[in-house]
């Protein structure tokens, strides 16, 4: 069997296995990125407008998560979360439950992403001219409306490059779940390669898939940034 035949979609080809892994990777990356955005937005607002206790707690969260290897966080959170949930379930009289790999992966990577997103969004929110927010307050806008109408649309253009990086990290970090035995693209690739001994074929095929994802996302985020900046004043030449 020639090596390209190994990539065929139906068995004996392994292409189908890779695509199943790819689908799992994408679901986890999207979920983790979304959860990270939600945590990041809350965290950024907390860091800017929160009281001293909240701010210090958030500082501990972002510092610890960013200083520890993702792999260790994944293991700690993966075992820790499943243990905790099961203890709670047992204590409240229910039986043990099995947390699905996708749920655990999304939760764990989302917590990691949230720490980075907090910092990205905090920087972007701080860059919104304070006069705009003061003006909105003076007009009597409630805080939620200020966030929706003023802060978030203005900061989006500034935050998108950082968020684009975070999304790329999310797609690549899904590979780490291979180590806790979750069947995403990288683990599927290793199984296919290990069984057929065609290591280069499969690892390069998976590499191409990841590359295509990252190039498409880079392009997409560039479009998104152009859209988010559509109202910005034109930049002066030579200045900044």
């Amino acid at each position: 069997m020639d090596t390209l035949g190994l990539l065929a979609l139906s068995p004996p080809g392994w292409g189908g296995t890779l695509l199943v892994g790819l689908w799992a990777s994408i679901r986890i990356a999207v979920g983790a990125f979304g959860l990270g955005l939600a945590i990041g937005l809350a965290g950024a607002y907390g860091k800017i407008y929160g009281g001293p206790v909240l701010r210090d707690c958030l500082a501990v969260y972002t510092t610890v998560v960013r200083a520890l290897p993702e792999l260790i966080l994944i293991l700690l959170l993966y075992f820790g979360l499943t243990d905790l949930v099961n203890k709670l379930m047992l204590a409240s009289g229910y039986g043990r439950i099995q947390i699905s790999g996708v749920t655990a992966g999304v939760l764990v990577l989302g917590v990691v992403q949230g720490a980075y997103a907090t910092e990205v969004l905090r920087g972007a929110i701080l860059a919104v001219p304070s006069g705009q927010i003061e003006a909105a307050r003076a007009m009597g806008m409630p805080a939620g409306k200020i966030a929706r109408r003023i802060t978030i649309p203005t900061m989006l253009g500034l935050a998108l490059p950082g968020l684009s990086n975070l999304w790329l990290i999310a797609t690549k970090d899904t590979a780490l779940l291979a180590i806790v035995g979750f069947n995403e693209l990288t683990l599927a690739t290793r199984q296919a390669a290990g069984t057929t001994k065609a290591f280069f074929t499969f690892f390069i095929a998976a590499g191409v898939i990841y590359l295509v994802i990252s190039m498409l996302s880079t392009w997409g985020f560039a479009r998104l940034e152009a859209w988010a900046r559509r109202g910005d004043p034109p930049r002066t030449a030579g200045g900044g």
Binding site: L168, K172, D173, T174, A175, L176, A178, I179, T186, T189, R190, A193, G194, F199, F200, F203, I204, A206, G207, Y210, L211, S214, M215
Partner: peptide
């Protein structure tokens, strides 16, 4: 682009197993 666009785990496995 290739190094930054693919997971490090995949690169390690490609070199080691490949």
């Amino acid at each position: 682009t290739v190094i930054r666009g693919t997971p490090l785990l995949l690169q390690i496995w490609l070199l080691y197993y490949g």
